[in-house]
Design a protein around this nucleic acid. Structure first.
Lengths: 229, 229
DNA sequence: CCAAAAGTGTTGGTCTTACACCCATGC
DNA sequence: GCATGGGTGTAAGACCAACACTTTTGG
């Protein structure tokens, strides 16, 4: 397989594709799940929307390339970032052979102003349930990303990566309901999530328009397997 | 990201890695899970064992490259084949930058004689729980493959890809116990698996050394999500 | 007739779901 | 004082885990 013999023996038959990463960045805003899209500048997909991405640098790991892309578009340094799937059909990009490793990034609720730089014609947030038809095979990437997010919400604690440092149980429940697209029973939700022991109740209260709600925070902000929802 | 601008703008900074697939082939034999390993011929890992793999051809999708590698080593045409994960640290292969997409292949119990061709020094089956230290980052690939297999055994019907066309419930249970590495209660196992409605009972019996057992077959041999074990 | 695997139901405990009322605040 | 979200417990049903004896064959 490797160079020693393979590249010697196969270099003519073997393609030498470009390797790129594409990053599906999700966040929550106005109680909806939002995805970050860029407008492609050149090539046959010019004008179409797609997930931001870019070629992997010579000295860079795939994870680092994804982190860099996330940072360049959003300024976000710390986020949940995980590999999704690798797409490599020869015809997926009509201009040249590009094998693309897709990543899922989750960033906390906040007003992030994305940066297109000169690389893209435009960049902005779209409601995840109302994305336009995307360039390349990115519609498939969307399905995968949503599927993975919904699945992981239910057996891991990754929701922490979408939450601000302090939140009420009502807000947390709303996040679950938004992503899973189904209502949850408030009493059962509170029982379950508190029983997991992942949250600490803060002394503070959120004083809003109505009865103040207790604020909570995650005790640890790192990925764990749990059984939630 | 794509060539239009990116390759123009970034081609010096961006590496142009080789893209390979590596295939973890599992089968069952003598009531143990077996993995197919090849012995590397050249380069810094010469003499070490690794999973079979190879560069992706210019006209080939990643899936096709994995299928081809499986076919070349085992002659098997039809198998469960799924992408696992993509590894791409710059230093993972000391000779040159290789991004490797790993695949999991499951083939039915049977006496397959693997074929090293001239590509490898040797090829043979190893017990999955007693693999030697592997070349490249393949120890990581092993962990992932076993993890994925165990997980999927529990919420999909992929076990069909490891079974011959006819089998007894005892044999099926033995497969689950082998892979999950824990004993299962016979009555509960039979109740559950029959309740799923995925099996049909054949008229035939397996006549062995003791009381004959009813033979079963999968009604459909294609992947489905279920809730098993 | 003995050894070995096949075949078969019931019960107790746990987990999950459904459900309704009072509370604290802002306006 | 009313509208709004916050906060709380219980009961019924579903699901799961544990468990032992009889049957059929080969040798």
């Amino acid at each position: 397989m490797r160079q020693g013999d393979s590249i010697g023996r196969f270099s003519l038959a073997q393609g030498h594709p470009w390797v790129a990463v594409d990053v599906v960045v999700f966040t929550l805003s106005q109680a909806t799940l939002q995805a970050l899209l860029v407008q492609v500048k050149d090539g046959p997909f010019a004008g179409k929307w797609a997930f931001p991405g870019g070629l992997v640098g010579a000295e860079e790991s795939l994870d680092q390339a994804a982190e860099r892309e996330l940072r360049e578009r959003t300024g976000v340094q710390e986020a949940h970032l995980e590999q999704l799937y690798t797409f490599g059909k020869p015809e997926r990009d009509p201009m040249s052979r590009v094998v693309s490793v897709s990543y899922l990034a989750l960033i906390p609720v906040q007003g992030i102003t994305p940066n297109a730089a000169s690389k893209y014609a435009d960049i902005r947030w779209f409601r995840a349930d109302r994305l336009p038809r995307l360039a390349y095979d990115h519609d498939q990437v969307t399905r995968l990303a949503l599927q993975r997010l919904r699945a992981k919400l239910q057996y891991t604690n990754i929701v922490y990566s979408l939450m601000p440092s302090e939140f009420t149980l009502g807000e947390l429940q709303e996040v679950y309901e938004t992503i899973l697209q189904r209502p949850l029973d408030r009493r059962n939700f509170r029982k379950r999530i508190l029983a997991l022991g992942l949250l600490k109740q803060l002394k503070k209260k959120r004083r809003g328009t109505h009865r103040p709600a207790s604020l909570y925070a995650f005790i640890r902000r790192r990925p764990m397997i749990i059984e939630m929802v």
